[in-house]
Design a protein around this nucleic acid. Structure first.
Lengths: 187, 187
DNA sequence: CTAATTTGCGACAATACTGTCTCACTCTAT
DNA sequence: ATAGAGTGAGACAGTATTGTCGCAAATTAG
């Protein structure tokens, strides 16, 4: 087996991120396999896209669970540590994170799961705000959105080779938490 | 004339942002016109996409020019004012900003212009870093990228109706410059 | 080495999309 | 009222994409 199913999914999501209208033939080429083989793994283009979305949500959910956003304590220290772990986990799956929102499917399953994960993340951010870990003068839904946006930027920067992978987490955390303003500057 | 050319472009970019693989028929429906009329304005799908990209780049360039990033002074105060004006201008065209990078065309013209605008923006950010307006411990190219990412997030939030349009600039500036961390929290 | 599995390749029909055209209809300005 | 411009609806051929199939070649396992 030259190219595994996972490798196909990796190549597919990378190619679809850069080129959302890609055909099955183009995706197969990007994965280095023939169109027939691609169809053997995924019966239709929609099947592939749904599978991609499912995997993206799986990984996002896993990042939330491993950070422990549900069972974390209410103290600032706990919340801060959990927040760092969450961001770190999401940086690890930055490739997928942008995909779920660009997803071109009418799959109820994906939409429902996506909404649930957003809900959980929002609740956690609100907890961080109440504990004084995150600013309360920004809407929680916007804070959540800004994480998403920065992850998209991160994915693009990595794809273009503009930043080093080992720097990714640091850049993400710094930009998200502290912003780009020089502290010495008169705010 | 029920629907003007500009209105068609507005509807098209909005629909393509949410659904990049949309067909001409779907775009026409989103614009509230017939497929024939859409073809009267844009001879082909590629023509439409290139036109959309051109307009996006026009507006981005205008935002840069009106902020005056080329002829601004070298002092921190000048640079800071110019930076605020630039971000404000870009927030006004958030709808388009994400489009240029998702653009699915091989148009040399668009790619060249996009590269040039990125180059100009990067140079300005580096100037801000040298003057102590923006942090120097983050790569300028990442700072530039993070603006792009936050604009994408802003566009999505506005589209979903999660934030008020009048709040857009404030949220963008606060997140970009100061980040989401609560200042009272032990950093 | 051999059998089994998997792959690439080409062919194929079915479908979807594109771009063009005609014609009837609806506006609007005069 | 009426001429003119613009529109929607539908038909149309041409093209691209999709999904399926058979078969030969290659890979892998035993």
């Amino acid at each position: 087996m030259a190219v595994s199913r996972e490798q196909i999914l990796d190549a597919a999501i990378r190619h679809l991120n850069a080129s959302p209208t890609a055909s099955m033939a183009q995706i197969a080429e990007a994965a280095g396999i023939s169109r027939a083989t691609l169809h053997r793994h995924f019966s239709s283009r929609d099947d592939l896209v749904v599978e991609l979305g499912r995997r993206a949500l799986d990984r996002w959910e896993r990042a939330q669970d491993e950070a422990g956003i549900a069972e974390t304590g209410a103290g600032p220290a706990d919340l801060r540590a959990t927040l760092m772990a969450l961001i770190e986990g999401e940086v690890g799956v930055a490739e997928e994170h942008g995909f779920t929102l660009t997803v071109e499917t009418t799959s109820e399953e994906l939409l429902a799961r996506s909404a649930e994960l957003e809900r959980r993340e929002l609740a956690f951010i609100e907890a961080c705000q109440r504990a004084g870990v995150l600013r309360s003068d920004l809407p929680a839904v916007w804070v959540s959105s800004s994480i998403y946006g920065l992850l998209v930027a991160l994915r693009e920067s990595l794809r273009r080779g503009e930043i080093a992978p080992r720097e990714a987490t640091r850049l993400m955390v710094e930009s998200f938490l502290r912003g780009a303003s020089d502290k010495g500057d008169l705010s």
